[in-house]
Design a protein around this nucleic acid. Structure first.
Length: 316
DNA sequence: TAGGCCATCTGGTCCT
DNA sequence: AGGACCAGATGGCCTA
């Protein structure tokens, strides 16, 4: 929040701007400080000489304070800009429902951790585990937001009272929770936060697949995939596109960028036997892993080149 | 209305 | 000396 332009704070002194204060006056006052006794007549202590406060000095102090305030504002704006950039590359970016600073940092940390785990494991990630990692330590609203992006029921992976996620740890568990994708995925796009429990999807026709099962699901908007109300980039979307980041900030196209994308768009390429997901032909879950660093692009899932993490590499 | 979040000011500390 | 960085204080805005 920006407040009104800076106004002069009340000072205990009253500097006069524009006053005719000369350096000579200060020099004279500094000479006064050379006095061997303090104001109580006691011998002057060692240490930096206390300069007598004058209007000119007060004015300069005030000006410096003013400038320091401006620098501090600028510095904080830069910090906030960086934080905004971070918001755009972590899952669940929303212009209308911005993550708080602390939640952004937590989610970013979890995101990095989850991606690292995925890479080091060298096998397909368990979605539920991935999301649980993402949501670890996050507040309930943010957890709901992530759930909304994924269109999962947050209750299924909420943390316990100790702040630890309760992780069922099995695909069977997940399948039991969601025997049918519309049954309790609950949250239609755009209602991911806090309203998901009450949302009853009755509009399923889009292809949906996970864990070898194949479903059908359609967004209430009539097919605009991944559309969330105000969420211009639902990076984690479970309703046809599972995308950890599907709009890429410009700056990350220029420099290094890590991103993952899952897509079920038919005809966008199939997976090899070593692919992350294999589903029905109509709803192939396309998995991409983009690792862009120093101008290089690593893409997994569309070609049959082995990537040393176990993923399929392309363009290496 | 309380609590959360935020922007800003401010003074202290450290570094160049 | 001056700038960067930091943390505490303060007050405004928003939401449950």
């Amino acid at each position: 929040m920006l407040t009104l332009p800076y106004e002069e704070p009340d000072m205990t002194y009253e500097p006069r701007f524009g006053g005719d204060i000369s350096e000579r006056e200060d020099e004279e006052e500094e000479r006064e400080d050379d006095n061997q006794q303090d104001e109580n007549g006691l011998p002057r202590k060692r240490g930096p000489r206390r300069k007598k406060s004058t209007k000119g000095r007060q004015e300069r102090v005030k000006v410096r304070r003013h400038e320091a305030n401006a620098r501090e504002r600028s510095r904080m704006h830069g910090l906030n800009d960086a934080l905004e950039s971070l918001r755009k590359v972590v899952p669940c970016y929303s212009k209308t429902q911005k993550l708080s600073k602390i939640e952004t940092l937590r989610l970013a940390k979890n995101y990095i951790w989850a991606l690292s785990e995925t890479l080091s494991a060298g096998k397909k990630p368990d979605l539920l585990g991935f999301v649980q990692t993402l949501c670890k330590g996050l507040s309930q609203p943010t957890t709901n937001l992530v759930a909304g992006c994924l269109q999962l029921n947050a209750r299924s992976f909420l943390t316990d009272h100790n702040g630890e996620v309760t992780y069922p740890g099995s695909r069977a568990h997940y399948d039991n929770m969601y025997p049918y994708p519309g049954a309790d995925l609950g949250t239609p796009p755009g209602q991911g936060c806090s309203t998901q429990d009450s949302a009853k999807p009755s509009y399923h026709s889009r292809h949906y697949s996970y864990g070898g099962q194949y479903y059908d699901y359609t967004s209430p908007e009539g097919g605009r995939e991944g559309h969330l109300d105000g969420q211009i980039s639902p990076p984690l979307n479970f309703s046809g596109i599972f995308s950890l980041k599907h709009d890429e900030p410009e700056e990350y196209g220029k420099s290094g960028h890590y991103g993952m994308r899952y897509s079920s768009v038919p005809g966008q390429g199939s997976l090899s036997s070593a692919s992350m997901y294999r589903v029905s032909p109509e709803g192939r879950l396309h998995y991409d892993l983009h690792l862009r660093s120093a101008g290089q692009t690593y893409k997994a899932g569309t070609q049959s080149q082995e990537f040393d993490t176990g993923l399929i590499a392309n363009g290496v």
